[in-house]
Amino acid sequence: MSMPIPRWLIGFAGVVYFFLHLPVLVLVVFSFNDSKFSVDWRGFTLQWYQRLLERPDILRGLKASLIVGGAATLISAVFGTLLALALARQRFRGRRMFEGFIYVPIVTPEIVTGISLLLLFALLKIPLGLTTITIAHVAFCISFVVIVVLARLEGMDENLEEAAMILGADEVTTFWKVTVPQLWPGILSGALLAFTMSFDDFVITSFVSGPGSSTLPIVVYGMVRKNVEPSINAISTIILLATAILIYLADRLARAK
């Protein structure tokens, strides 16, 4: 059936796409504008990018984000993969309930997660810093890893593992030589998603970060609140580019055979 899509509908969709992409496009374009205050185009410049390098707070924020992101990704990738294996391959009491529980952190508003963790850390008198940020990030990243890895496990052939066992490999060998290699793209893709979530997170981080442990989004938020110099456009463009690359890689891996 090849009924053409009505013209007005295409036009309408075009307007929506315009609305969806114009703001970020404008933001990126004006990160190269040679004017501090004007929104007129005054020529191409890279000075706002150079300015970023002169700001120690941004570099510190980037470093903090990379440390937290790296640690949170590693922990949530390992723990998340184990959880996915348990949910997909093992039978135990309360499995259904636990499976549902995995989705709760995803639907919980970030502000609720942030507040509740802040209260816990305050109660236990744990000082806020990179450690508490990492703990919080793992808590919301694990679920995403579990979901991605579970999807991969569902498409996997269990016969290969059985074959390995029949051929005399013990369970550990089978796990490392058969299960992990097959699962690898799923794990990596889950890890990249986790890193992206961690790298992007502002709301939860803002509650569990202490003085001197500001991640990049916290620094950028401070810049946005204070003034509106084009350096924000530049750092935003860099964040956009980094996220786009990570998501592209995650997507490629998730589709890998």
Binding site: F79, G80, A86, Q90, F92, S116, L117, A139
Partner: peptide, 27 residues
């Protein structure tokens, strides 16, 4: 077999309970 399942569940499950569920209860 149940022990094997729990071994896989333990680290992540602990994290989600200690740093997601318990904080909600504290709240």
């Amino acid at each position: 077999p149940e022990a094997r399942a729990w071994a896989l569940l333990a680290p992540g499950g602990f994290w989600l309970i200690a740093f997601f569920l318990v904080p909600l209860l504290v709240m």
